[in-house]
């Protein structure tokens, strides 16, 4: 299949040309699926989010002003779709009991050899709200203020949930490391 440049795809999609619309789906769905996958626990939900996001992208591409990269614009739509997919209330009301902070620290060796799939598996063990905030802050690079606006929560809620997410991750990594050492 012919590979189109982002400019060609944008121009073609703005004119609602099916071949360019399909080219967008073919060329970018892998990248966008990876984003969607980080925000969901199961593949079925991530497929639903990706499909919804692609429809949104193709419908609203005429509004794309070519400020920032095209990929970043599409990723943002996927993230917003994922956020909508889960109830916003879950970010406010979801309460998880965090056990005491693990005493042991995690050595870099515990994760330095981990590939993306394994990292994704670890992150997916986090509850929805922690996972979302961790992804937005640590992976996508949004500030707490931006996260607060996106999720309709306060900045302090975002901070506290991130702290808890980090603590949970630490715990998961230590447990994983212990199992590895036993083996």
């Amino acid at each position: 299949m012919k590979k189109y440049t982002p400019q060609e795809i944008i121009r073609g999609c703005k004119k609602q040309e099916p071949r360019f619309q399909k080219a967008l789906v073919v060329q970018y769905s892998g990248l966008l699926m990876a984003v969607s996958r980080r925000y969901t626990k199961d593949q079925s939900s991530s497929k639903d989010i990706l499909q919804e996001a692609l429809i949104q992208i193709l419908k609203s591409i005429t509004n794309y002003k070519e400020q920032g990269t095209f990929e970043a614009w599409m990723k943002r739509i996927v993230i917003n779709t994922a956020i909508k997919y889960f109830s916003k209330n879950s970010f406010k009301n979801e309460l998880y009991t965090i056990d005491d902070q693990p005493e042991n620290s995690v050595e870099p060796g515990a994760y330095s050899n981990m590939a993306a799939a394994e990292l994704m598996e670890i992150i997916n063990q986090l509850p929805d709200s922690y996972r979302t905030i961790f992804n937005l802050y640590a992976i996508e690079g949004y500030s707490h203020k931006e996260i607060g606006e996106m999720l309709s929560i306060t900045e302090s809620t975002s901070r506290s949930q991130l702290t808890r997410a980090r603590a949970s991750l630490k715990k998961i990594l230590i447990t994983k490391e212990k199992i590895r050492l036993r083996i």
Partner: peptide
Amino acid sequence: HAREQFDGLEVTV
């Protein structure tokens, strides 16, 4: 490390 791994990551669809 996670950022590096996820950067440009593509999943088969």
